[in-house]
């Protein structure tokens, strides 16, 4: 991410913060729900979209983060401590889940994460001292850096701030040796190994960093919903997150945010439409079907997701409106590149 993009990102974040007080409670709620999901989707996109390790236990990992943050917060710690603690705990669990990836590849590893998801769900019900079993763990509001921000607008500010920090951090990470190794392993593990990359260690780093972000996202989820219960972190949530990064764009940072917004807001929109026509229950039932259909359509027609669709539209607009003489060459090569990628 260039300096310009960072500035744009921070400006957008500040704009959101400024608008927040005028949004009302529902508006603020939408902002933080999307921002929290975006952090989670970013974590998963780092693992799947950049390092090529398909995972179906992201929902479970968010749960680990939620329980960890809840317990630390309930022990009277600051929310910042709770979130960082949740990140560290989840990173550790994520690395454990990633260990089979040292032996298994592709779909075989994906199956092992599916197993991990079910084990986590089981543990959430089993370890009652920490999770309070099926009834769920109630979470007390915690101060943020000593400030009382435990209201919808406060949560929105924290979530947006954290999202911006995560986006900048991940984009910079991708421009380090470690980030380049992630991409190399995704493109070809055999080539990476041949070039002398320590594939095992690199993969575990991907799991650790992705787990850290997932833990923070899960922790925020816990504080905002004030409860962590096992049924919130089931396989359906994992599938939702995979849907987010496929719809948004595998291996794209804006894609994680776009996909999260899409997947989170679609049910809200569906409900509104349903309410208008007095058929809320029917549209709610349609949700899963629409997601399934969307994933299939995107995989077939736009594997790089909404983000690629958007950037191509922008490019086309620029080409038709901009001065032809000095734009011609660059857009022609851009087009070639897009075609080559497809």
């Amino acid at each position: 991410m260039s300096l310009r993009q960072i500035i744009i990102l921070i400006t957008v974040a500040l704009a959101v913060m400024v608008v927040l007080p005028g949004l009302g409670r529902y508006g603020a709620y939408i902002v933080y729900v999307v921002a929290i999901a975006s952090i989670g989707a970013l974590a998963l996109n780092l693992l799947i979209g950049y390092c090529g390790q398909i995972s179906f236990c992201h929902g479970g990992l968010l749960g680990v983060g939620a329980y960890a943050a809840g317990n630390i917060g309930n022990a009277g710690q600051d929310m910042v401590v709770a979130l960082v603690g949740a990140g560290i705990v989840t990173a550790f669990v994520s690395v454990m889940i990633g260990l089979p990836a040292l032996r298994l590849r592709g779909l075989y590893f994906a199956i092992s994460t599916l197993a991990a998801q079910f084990i986590l769900e089981y543990l959430f019900r089993l370890i009652e001292p920490w999770t309070h079993g099926v009834s769920g763990l109630l979470i007390q509001p915690a101060p943020f850096f000593g400030l009382d921000l435990s209201n919808d607008r406060g949560y929105a500010a924290i979530a947006v701030g954290l999202l911006v920090m995560s986006l900048i951090a991940v984009s910079r990470l991708l421009r380090t040796d470690l980030g380049r190794r992630f991409i190399l392993i995704r493109d070809s593990e055999i080539v990476a190994r041949g070039m002398g990359v320590n594939v095992a260690r690199t993969k575990l780093w991907a799991f650790a960093i992705s787990g850290f972000l997932a833990g923070m996202s899960g922790g925020l989820l816990a504080f905002t919903s004030r409860i962590a219960a096992p049924e919130a972190f089931e396989i359906a949530l994992s599938v939702d997150y995979v849907a987010m990064i496929i719809v948004g764009g595998l291996g794209s940072l804006p894609g994680a945010v776009i996909g999260a917004g899409f997947v989170v807001l679609l049910p809200e929109v569906a409900q509104r439409i349903g309410e208008t026509f007095g058929a809320a229950t029917q549209t709610a039932a349609l949700r899963e079907m629409v997601f399934g259909l969307l994933i299939i359509l995107f995989l077939i027609h736009e594997p790089r997701g909404l983000n690629s669709l958007a950037s191509r539209a922008v490019r086309r607009l620029r080409r038709t409106s901009g001065p032809l003489s000095n734009n011609k060459r660059s857009s022609a090569s851009d087009l070639e590149m897009t075609q080559a990628r497809l």
Binding site: L173, T176, D177, L178, L184, M195, G196, G251
Partner: peptide
């Protein structure tokens, strides 16, 4: 030779350099 999708020439050369040991990860990150 490998045909990699996204990595640029410089990226690949940097991966090559990094395998020698000393990582400049943190400095590059900052």
């Amino acid at each position: 030779v490998a045909s990699l999708n996204d990595l640029t020439v410089l990226d690949v050369v940097k991966v090559g350099r990094s395998v020698h040991g000393h990582s400049r990860g943190l400095r590059e990150f900052l």
